[in-house]
């Protein structure tokens, strides 16, 4: 299993990684501090290298989470990315963000930081 974590906060990445490990994901985790870099990989990677899960932060400089989603949907037209389940990771408690996330079909779920083990176990359970 392959997982991408896209977040500009290194400590937050560390926590997500640790939670995935503790939650029982046996996965190869790739982390990105910038959404651009992740898009580049998604564009060029062979099918088998595509991630099963993408954990995406919303609030980032330059390309933020929403812009990543727009680019991702664009890319999905060119090559099928539907094996990637996207989960939003955010510390925002803003309800409008959740509403906005629900408009994107590709988003499988919305996780509030801090990530906890139960979240991760639930995701694992839901997908396998």
């Amino acid at each position: 299993m392959k997982i991408f974590i896209i977040d500009d906060d290194e400590i937050s990445i560390f926590l997500t990684e640790r939670s995935l490990q503790l939650g029982g994901f046996k996965a190869e985790i790739t982390t990105f501090l910038e959404a651009d870099a992740a898009l580049e990989v998604l564009k060029n990677a062979p099918e088998e290298e595509l991630p099963n899960f993408i954990f995406l932060d919303l609030n980032m400089p330059e390309v933020d989470g929403w812009e990543f989603l727009a680019a991702f949907e664009q890319l999905d037209q060119e090559r099928s990315l539907n094996k990637c389940a996207i989960y939003i990771l955010t510390s925002s408690l803003n309800i409008s963000d959740i509403d906005r996330a629900n408009e994107h079909e590709l988003i499988k779920g919305f996780i509030h930081k801090p990530v906890n083990l139960e979240d991760m176990e639930a995701i694992l359970h839901l997908n396998y």
Binding site: D9, I11, S12, L15, R18, S19, L22, N59, S91, S92, L93, N94, H112, K113, P114, V115, N116
Partner: peptide
């Protein structure tokens, strides 16, 4: 509040582990 929340969420997550 948003920017206080980010480091606070990290600290909380770390402490729980």
């Amino acid at each position: 509040s948003h920017n206080l929340r980010a480091p606070l969420a990290n600290a909380l997550g770390l402490v729980r582990h």
